[in-house]
Design a protein around this nucleic acid. Structure first.
Length: 366
DNA sequence: GACGCGTGGTC
DNA sequence: TGACCAAGCGT
């Protein structure tokens, strides 16, 4: 099976020549041919941010993180809440929790990242992809890097019609055949750049692809329908209530969510669980105790926020209230107006805040 | 292998 | 405009 050594060498050479001319300039990347070694800290940080996240979304976060925490020791010394606030809006918050755990583990054992795939994969938040990527890009190890781009490129190059995820083993094997002993990091980044800019999910630009002559899918005309994927499950609709309270001095009533689960460890508004039946709807007893507001006040309806998570749609009913000065809430804690920044909230909670603002009384001037 | 886990861009 | 998609990981 596979290609002979001369074919492999030709593909590798064509790809690297293309990469030398067309590599994207990215904040964490060292240009090919510069001779510089990338900083493992920056490679690791960028790879974690890029997990299931677009380059465009990552750039600003990467700049803010590296400006605030220039080294892994700086990050390791940060407080949990600071990192969660800086990560807010980027999603998949387990990444931020594992980022800190990883930074502290590396710093505690001397401050240098492991320089092998096996050493890296033992760290929190570093799986098969990220371990191979750091080993190849930062440490020039000949590891095979397989992400969604590489899967797509391999499926097309070899016209593999088995649907994902069943095809993963074969796609990994095909990618491994092409991994070069020299410049493995550039090769890995080149395949990913190829997938991101030419061998795109829709309307691939086959006419300018360095591998167009060898591509089996292009020859068969199947490139647009590869890789095949198992059908997705439909997203159910869930409902919940969020209470957004502001005290007379401007302080907001917020609540840190549990460390695990959805939006784990992030700051948000007190609320009900999110269930498939509207709260207080069909159940004869009305709202459960979980349906009680966090503090007694004149709560009024401020509309709803719609948001879609990975596996369900949410309609969040927003209740807003101006809370008295001596208010003693049953849940949550007040955050002073000067310390509150909506940008430190995950996107759903940011939307809820924006929805509640018009329903709250004007604050005293000054 | 399946599932839980965010968000914003795209068509 | 709703569904799909993006440099995956942990359980």
């Amino acid at each position: 099976m596979g290609r002979d050594a001369r074919e492999v060498a030709a593909l590798q050479a064509e790809l690297l020549a293309w990469y030398d001319r067309h590599a994207r300039a990215l904040p964490w990347r060292v240009p090919p041919g510069s001779g510089a070694r990338p900083d493992p800290y920056r490679i690791w940080l960028s790879e974690v941010m890029l997990q299931q996240t677009t380059v465009a979304a990552v750039k600003d976060y990467f700049h803010r993180f590296t400006a605030r925490w220039p080294t892994i020791a700086d990050l390791a010394a940060a407080e949990d809440g600071e990192v969660m606030a800086e990560w807010a809006g980027l999603g998949y918050y387990a990444r931020a929790r594992n980022l800190l755990r990883c930074a502290r583990a590396v710093t505690a054992s001397g401050g240098a990242f492991p320089d092998t795939r096996a050493g890296l994969i033992a760290l929190p938040g570093i799986g098969p992809y990220t371990a191979a990527a750091i080993a190849a890009i930062a440490f020039d190890r000949a590891e095979t890097v397989v992400d969604g781009n590489v899967e797509r490129v391999m499926a097309r190059l070899h016209d593999i019609r088995t649907p994902l995820p069943a095809a993963k083993a074969e796609l990994n094997a095909r990618a491994a055949e092409l991994t070069p002993a020299r410049r493995p990091g550039d090769h890995a980044q080149a395949v990913m750049d190829l997938g991101a800019t030419i061998c795109t999910p829709r309307n691939p630009a086959c006419g300018i692809c360095p591998w167009r002559g060898a591509c089996a899918a292009r020859a068969a005309g199947t490139q647009a329908e590869l890789p095949r994927k198992a059908p997705r499950k439909a997203k159910p609709l869930r409902h919940g209530i969020a209470w957004i309270g502001r005290r007379a001095d401007g302080a907001w009533l917020l609540e840190r969510r549990p460390e695990t689960g959805l939006l784990g460890g992030t700051l948000g508004w007190p609320g009900t669980d999110w269930t498939e039946a509207p709260p207080g709807g069909a159940s004869p007893g009305g709202e459960s105790s979980d349906g009680a507001p966090p503090a007694p006040a004149a709560w009024h309806a401020a509309g709803e926020v719609r948001h879609t998570f990975t596996h369900f749609h949410l309609v969040l009913d927003i209740r807003a209230a101006d809370l008295p000065e001596g208010c003693a809430p049953a849940r949550g804690e007040f955050v002073a107006a000067a310390a509150f920044d909506p940008a430190a909230l995950p996107t759903l909670m940011r939307k809820a805040h924006a929805r509640a603002l018009p329903a709250l009384g004007g604050r005293p001037a000054g």
